[in-house]
């Protein structure tokens, strides 16, 4: 089969870029105040995958992040915890021990993150290592090079193989939309990932600019919606990278609600991949509570 024939197998619709951008922009015009805002902010907190994916990560940094995940800001009562910690595979065991009994998941990137340039054997070994250490969620990257060469079967098979290696762990498939080029490609990659069995589709690694944007996320949400309408099966969504302000996070929640509905407004089906979003949300919550604008140095570093 050639490229366009395969694209047709996945029945990916053509994306109207202008329409998507305009639609995404309209979500940012909703005004959310007082009680609804507080509710939204707490929901954002509960959906965060608190992330550290740096070459310079240390055990100490991971421990600190795990502590932060459980104690976001102890002076405020009744705050939710974040949904998960996201680390490299070699820190999974440590994170798992630090978070024991907290109910917070440990997610691990795998499959030669962030480039995904390695053999299938090595990628599967990477996944198995993370899973055997106790990872609850696996964030894989697709092979963008193969995708651009039109080898969609390869991309599909790879995701399916990783899914099989995940066992009980939930699989998030990173499309790295900043490298895909067009919204049509984003839609096609989403459809492939969903068809291959991904539990979540995720925008970016956070290593490439642009990372998550609202139009790209909207296209992916629509792929999830179409799949749900066809099959009745839910798939999760995780925008990652570049979402560091609570206002923007609230815009994303509105987009999820208006595209997919209330069922997705749950950490099981929607996540934010972010490292600095949590503190901004906490500062907003504290502002709502006290009436005074907050300063970053009153909050734990993340």
């Amino acid at each position: 089969m050639n490229q366009s024939q395969i694209a047709r197998v996945f029945k990916s619709p053509v994306i109207d870029q202008v329409g998507v951008v305009e639609r995404a922009k309209r979500f940012t015009t909703r005004s959310i105040k007082s009680e609804a805002k507080m509710q939204g902010l707490e929901m954002v907190l509960s959906m965060i995958d608190l992330t550290t994916l740096e070459g310079m990560d240390t055990e100490g940094k991971v421990k600190q992040l795990c502590y932060k995940a459980q104690h976001l800001h102890d002076s405020i009562d009744g705050l939710p915890t974040v949904a998960a910690i996201c680390v490299y595979p070699n820190f999974v065991g440590l994170a798992k021990r630090c978070l024991a009994g907290s109910g917070i998941n440990v997610a691990s990137v795998a499959t030669a993150f962030p480039s995904g340039n390695s053999s299938l054997e090595i990628k599967l070994a990477d996944v198995s290592m993370a899973v055997s250490e106790g990872a609850d969620e696996i964030d894989m990257v697709i092979s963008r090079g193969r995708f651009h060469r039109g080898e969609y079967n390869f991309v599909f098979d790879e995701i399916a193989a990783v899914k099989a290696a995940c066992g009980e762990a939930r699989l998030k498939t990173i499309l790295e939309t900043g490298e895909l080029g067009s919204l049509d490609k984003v839609r096609l990659a989403s459809d492939i990932a969903i068809a291959a069995g991904a539990d979540f589709i995720k925008t970016s690694t956070g290593k490439i600019q642009p990372a998550a944007t609202m139009p790209v996320t909207l296209v992916m949400l629509e792929a999830i919606r179409d799949h749900f309408q066809k099959t009745g099966l839910m798939v999760g969504m995780k925008p990652a990278g570049g979402i560091s302000k609570s206002k923007l996070a609230l815009h994303y929640l509105i987009m999820v609600k208006e595209t997919l509905g209330d069922a997705w407004l749950d950490p099981k089906w929607f996540r934010f991949g972010a490292s600095s979003l949590a503190n901004d949300v906490l500062m907003q919550i504290e502002k709502q509570r006290t009436g005074a604008y907050q300063a970053a140095n009153y909050f734990a570093i993340d």
Partner: peptide, 8 residues
């Protein structure tokens, strides 16, 4: 009020 209460 806003600048004098501002923590930053």
């Amino acid at each position: 009020e806003h600048f004098s209460r501002h923590l930053d």
